[in-house]
Amino acid sequence: MNHHQLEKDIEHLEHVISHISAEDRIPLSYWRSRLDSVSLAALVPAQANRVKRLNAVLLALEERLKA
């Protein structure tokens, strides 16, 4: 994945994950898959930190869904 596409993907995930809930039409598993694919890319430290924050938010949503 090239640097520009990776940055666009992270930006998109930041936007979406900040607005979704466990009850949304698109299941959290879809966003988990998208985030996991970004996590596998070669990230610079700033991107890795952003992905880590996204992961924490998504994990919290997933936990709420389980409860």
Rank of each mutant, 00 (worst) to 15 (best):
Arg64Leu: 15
Leu28Arg: 09
Asp9Glu: 14
Ala22Asp: 00
Glu14Val: 04
Arg53His: 12
Ser39Ile: 06
Leu65Asp: 09
Leu13Phe: 01
Lys52Leu: 11
Ser33Leu: 12
Glu23Ser: 14
Glu14Thr: 04
Ile10Cys: 05
Ala56Pro: 01
Ala67His: 13
Ile10Trp: 00
Arg25Tyr: 13
Leu40Arg: 10
Trp31Gly: 05
Ser37Glu: 05
Ile26Gln: 08
Pro45Phe: 09
Leu40Phe: 09
Trp31Ile: 00
Lys66Phe: 15
Ile20Met: 09
Leu40Lys: 10
Leu59Lys: 12
Lys52Trp: 11
Leu65Lys: 15
Leu65Val: 10
His19Met: 11
Leu13Asn: 02
Ser18Ile: 04
Val57Cys: 12
Asp24Arg: 14
Ser37Leu: 08
Asn55Cys: 11
Leu6Asp: 02
Leu58Glu: 06
Asn55His: 14
Arg34Phe: 03
Leu28Asp: 01
Ser29Lys: 12
Gln5Asp: 02
His4Cys: 07
Ser33Ala: 13
Val38Phe: 07
Val38Thr: 04
Ala48Glu: 03
His15Tyr: 15
Asp24Gly: 02
Ala46Leu: 11
Lys66Cys: 10
Glu63Phe: 15
Ser39Gly: 11
Ala60Asp: 05
Ala22His: 04
Ala46Val: 09
Ser37Ala: 09
Asn2Ser: 10
Leu28Val: 01
Ala67Leu: 13
Leu54His: 08
Gln5Ser: 03
Asp24Ile: 07
Asn49Leu: 10
Ser37Thr: 06
Val38Ala: 05
Glu7Ser: 00
Ser37His: 08
Leu35Asp: 00
Ala56Met: 14
Gln47Met: 04
Glu7Pro: 00
Arg25Pro: 06
Ala22Gly: 00
Val44Ile: 14
His15Glu: 11
Gln5Thr: 05
Leu6Gly: 06
Leu13Cys: 06
Arg64Thr: 13
Ala42Gln: 11
His15Asn: 09
His4Leu: 14
Asn2Tyr: 07
Asn49Ile: 05
Ala60Glu: 08
Arg50Ala: 05
Ile20Ser: 05
Ser39Arg: 06
Ser39Glu: 07
Leu35Pro: 00
Ser37Arg: 11
His15Thr: 13
Gln47Thr: 01
Ile17His: 07
Glu63Ser: 15
Ile17Gln: 08
Ser18Val: 08
Ala67Phe: 15
